[in-house]
Design a protein around this nucleic acid. Structure first.
Lengths: 202, 202
DNA sequence: GTCTATAGTATGATAGAC
DNA sequence: GTCTATCATACTATAGAC
């Protein structure tokens, strides 16, 4: 049960540097130096550089997925047939709550954005592992809410929405974002993405 | 006027490898080996590894910007006050024409997507150099078409649209896309993004 | 324009003392 | 758990013969 504080410091520092400079431009030495830890600490605590990346993204995406599922469970308990706008709103709400909760650890958000936008096989695999199931569940719920839209159109539109969200993570500001600002951003996103999600197919 | 075919081969190969594996995971040696050129050829023809990246993206983004300006000029000559849907359509049309024209050189498209989604200062600088002016011109035209929307809301929405386009480049398929498929995709994008662009502010 | 050879540096990872 | 020292390998870039 011994949680070494060095491990946490390494994780925070790695997220910071990976987010700012990218995974490849960040060396193990950069991390250990900035975290004021030993050169060998990364391999002792995590085993490899890539394992640090996975640990740092899991720390954000794990709770995010949990929150998304919980919000969907709650909505389905309240409403028999939620609208696409309701589904979109809770989908985005989970993101904004997560981003908001990070506060001064916004680098973790930008790091997740990097991983999810990188089309390299290794990163795509990580993204699919972490997001695939949750995404499929929302696609199904949206299909029920939008019976007039072909299933592939719904999947395609959800992909575009995710692209916007990934961009949001990627450019999440360094300074703290207040709850009010986060709420405004949520309304902005719903106002922009909602009409397109439920629009008639071309 | 001597255009060495080695130079072109290096450019194509570099685009291919940068797109598939990323700039940092691609070495100068990887490029020269795959292009069946000499180790020193990159530095002889371009000067540095980063100069190759810039040359490879310029080759796509240069014509794309020209086409965007031309389509906007044509539209403004035809219509005194084009609608936001008309503006959106030509904005996207320039992208799809460019992507379509690449044909079997789709790697160049994925490479541009990588550069434009990378938030590192060097890449952001490249993106701003190449896209800033064109983007501003469209934002102005949209502001005239949507007088009820605050200017900052228009800029924000255009940023989200660009995020979707960048994602489109990033995941542009390896196989050839037919003109018909490109036209379908254009309609799909306009149907999805158009309503959100002109929606009332939150 | 093309080649070989190499300088000069940085990398991820590990061994082994404490 | 932390440290130093180091292995083995890779990198960008350049010098200089052809």
């Amino acid at each position: 049960m011994s949680t070494s504080s060095t491990r946490d410091r390494l994780l925070d520092t790695a997220a910071q540097l990976f987010a700012e400079n990218g995974f490849d431009r960040t060396s193990v030495r950069d991390i250990t130096t900035a975290a004021e830890a030993n050169q060998a600490a990364i391999h002792y605590h995590f085993g490899s550089k890539e394992a640090v990346l996975r640990a740092a993204t899991d720390r954000v995406v794990g709770p995010l997925n949990e929150r998304r599922h919980q919000l969907l469970d709650d909505l389905l308990a309240d409403e028999h047939e939620p609208t696409s706008d309701q589904l979109l709103r809770i989908f985005l709400q989970a993101d904004l709550e997560t981003l908001q909760a990070l506060q001064d650890r916004g680098a973790a958000a930008r790091l997740v954005g990097r991983v999810y936008s990188d089309p390299s096989p290794a990163m795509q695999a990580m993204a699919r592992d972490q997001f695939g199931e949750t995404g499929a569940r929302f696609a199904d719920a949206l299909a029920a809410a939008l019976p007039k839209l072909p299933a592939d159109e719904i999947v395609w539109r959800l992909e575009q929405i995710v692209a916007v969200i990934v961009n949001l993570f990627l450019r999440w500001p360094h300074e703290g974002v207040t709850p009010t600002e986060a709420a405004v951003l949520l309304d902005r996103l719903v106002a922009f993405l909602g009409p397109g999600l439920s629009a008639p197919p071309p």
